[in-house]
Structure formats: C-alpha cells, structure tokens
Simulated assay, not measured.
Amino acid sequence: MKRYLLLLLFAFTFTVNGQTYLSARVVAIKDGDTVVVLDSLRTQTTLRLAEVDCPEKSQAFGARAKEFTSDAIFNTTIEYVVIDIDRYGRAIAMVYYGADRKYLSAEIIRAGMGWHYKRYSNSEELAQLEEEARAARRGLWIDDNPIPPYEWRKN
C-alpha cells in the first residue's frame, strides 16, 4: 500500500530545471490571487499566486479579478511550483494552466486584473505587461488613480 501511494504521489509531481512541479485540481477561488487546490491524496492546499497582487474583494475590480481567475482555472488541473510560505501559512506558488502552460500571474497582469507585485518580484516581463495594461487602460487601469491593494489594506 505504501509503495502504491508513493507511486501515485510521484505520478503527480515532476521536476524541470531543478524545480518540482506539483499537479492538483482547483476546487475554490478565494479571490483574484488566492486559490484552493486538491491533490491526488485528497489534501487541500491554499495557494497565494506569486508576483501579482489583485484588488481586495471590497475594492474596485476585486470581484472581476476573482472572476478572471475563476474563468481561467476553476475546476481544472493546474501545475504549480511552491516558492515560499507566507505569514498566513499559504503556499506562494507560480501557477501554470492550459495546454500551453500559461503563467496565471502574467495573464492576470496582462488583463489589468492585478498589479505586478514589485516588492516580491523583479520580473522585467511582468513589469512590461503591467505597463502595457496601463497604457491600454485595460481592467482596473480604466480608473485614473487605482489604489494598490497593499495601500488599501493599510486603511
């Protein structure tokens, strides 16, 4: 039985360039940048998306950011890499989805549904995607002065 469980676990993990990718089904969307997954061992894990900060639920575009994430990955199997654990015990993860393995954080930023979280990411690609979304006034960038979630949370 133990051997079977280990084989099952390894069937849903793989390593590329020294990074361990996990596979799980998305069972809940808490908000635009936080999801809950269920793995092959029926363990639920809360994932906080890396490199992106979406509006809070009560903030302008908070519901739309959640809807964007839900439309992209709810009830699908994703692949993810855990890069850290936050102070709330959530796994901070880089999430990939779809046949072409889109990077969810990049797609959120591209659609104007979140900020590139520069405090925790120095990705030039994500910074460029945010600039493009701002210039095109996509999503939350339609507002003249959107309030970043980290500032919103201070109030």
Rank of each mutant, 00 (worst) to 15 (best):
K118E: 15
A63R: 03
D53H: 06
E56A: 04
I73K: 02
K57V: 10
R48M: 14
E107N: 04
R64I: 13
H116Y: 02
N75S: 12
G114Y: 05
A24C: 06
A91E: 13
E107D: 12
E67N: 08
L5M: 08
G32F: 03
A72H: 04
I109Q: 05
N17T: 12
I73C: 10
A127M: 07
K66H: 09
A50R: 01
G98Y: 01
R3S: 15
N122K: 08
Q128N: 10
K102N: 13
G139Q: 00
P146A: 00
I29K: 05
T46K: 02
V16N: 02
T69P: 10
R48F: 12
E151L: 12
I109Y: 00
N145H: 10
A24W: 01
R134Y: 11
V81P: 04
G62K: 00
V16P: 12
A136N: 07
R138A: 12
I92C: 09
W115Y: 11
T69M: 07
A127T: 08
I108K: 01
I142P: 07
E67Q: 07
H116R: 01
A28W: 03
Y150V: 14
D86L: 05
V95L: 01
Y150A: 10
F10W: 08
Y150T: 13
I147D: 08
T76I: 06
I78N: 04
T69V: 10
F61M: 02
E56I: 06
I142W: 00
I109F: 04
W141F: 10
V37C: 05
A65K: 00
L41Y: 06
T20K: 01
S121M: 04
D143W: 02
V26A: 06
Y96G: 06
